[in-house]
Design a protein around this nucleic acid. Structure first.
Length: 203
DNA sequence: TTATTGATTGACT
DNA sequence: GTCAATCAATAAA
């Protein structure tokens, strides 16, 4: 079992964390199952000054309060009233920056993932979207605010090499109505990787 | 108080 | 390409 990422990892610049998370592995234990997924797509959300963030203008609510935790915790919220999405919280407490996990490759427990994602017709559809990552791994409200070095939810470092030139950058998805922030280059993914979301647009 | 809007997904034309 | 599902947060009234 690789080492869990240390707390200091999450206190780096949030864009640095978003890039560094590519290739890292997210682990989820539910009962006797231990599931693992390699992250291949992330998006950075930069707190109060980011119009696309749930914490824009310093907004606080029951939903987003875990964004204000110290780096190294999970922020899990319900998207469109239906789908859970998971963020990795960054920065010190009260700085609401986070990285959305948008896509991953199955590493362990793929059969359990297929059961949780019956609509996936092939392996690259299991977790090629933020709601699908949470569905496949059984991540829901119970994970919100949880530390990322615990027993049921944790992250370990890269188990593959990732060169800087393999990291592609684009604007974020689904935030068109956020003014200038809609165009900020804060989405990061592995170039040409079949498991990323919206693959057809960036092949 | 009511209306609008999503950090999405999947079904359908 | 279009659109509905479904609900919490926010904006508007």
């Amino acid at each position: 079992m690789p080492e869990k990422l240390p707390r200091a990892f999450y206190l780096q610049d949030t864009v640095t964390v978003a890039r560094a998370l590519l290739g890292c592995v997210l682990w989820r234990r539910t009962g006797r199952e231990l599931l693992a997924a390699r992250i291949v797509e992330t998006e950075a959300y930069l707190g109060a000054n980011d119009a696309a963030s749930h914490a824009r203008r310093g907004l606080r609510s029951d939903r987003n309060q875990s964004m204000y935790l110290e780096g190294g915790h999970a922020y899990v919220y319900l998207s469109y009233g239906m789908h859970w999405c998971m963020n990795v919280v960054c920065q010190e407490a009260d700085i609401a920056e986070a990285v959305l996990l948008r896509a991953a490759i199955p590493v362990q427990g793929i059969e359990a993932m297929r059961e949780r994602r019956p609509k996936a017709k092939n392996d690259y559809e299991l977790m090629n979207g933020p709601g699908k990552v949470c569905a496949a791994l059984g991540i829901d409200k119970s994970c919100d605010g949880e530390p990322l070095d615990g027993d049921s939810l944790f992250l370990t470092g890269r188990d593959i090499e990732v060169r800087e030139q393999e990291i592609a950058v684009s604007k974020r998805i689904g935030v068109e109505n956020s003014g200038d922030a809609a165009h900020w280059p804060l989405r990061f993914f592995l170039l040409g990787n079949r498991y990323v979301s919206a693959y057809r647009h960036v092949r």
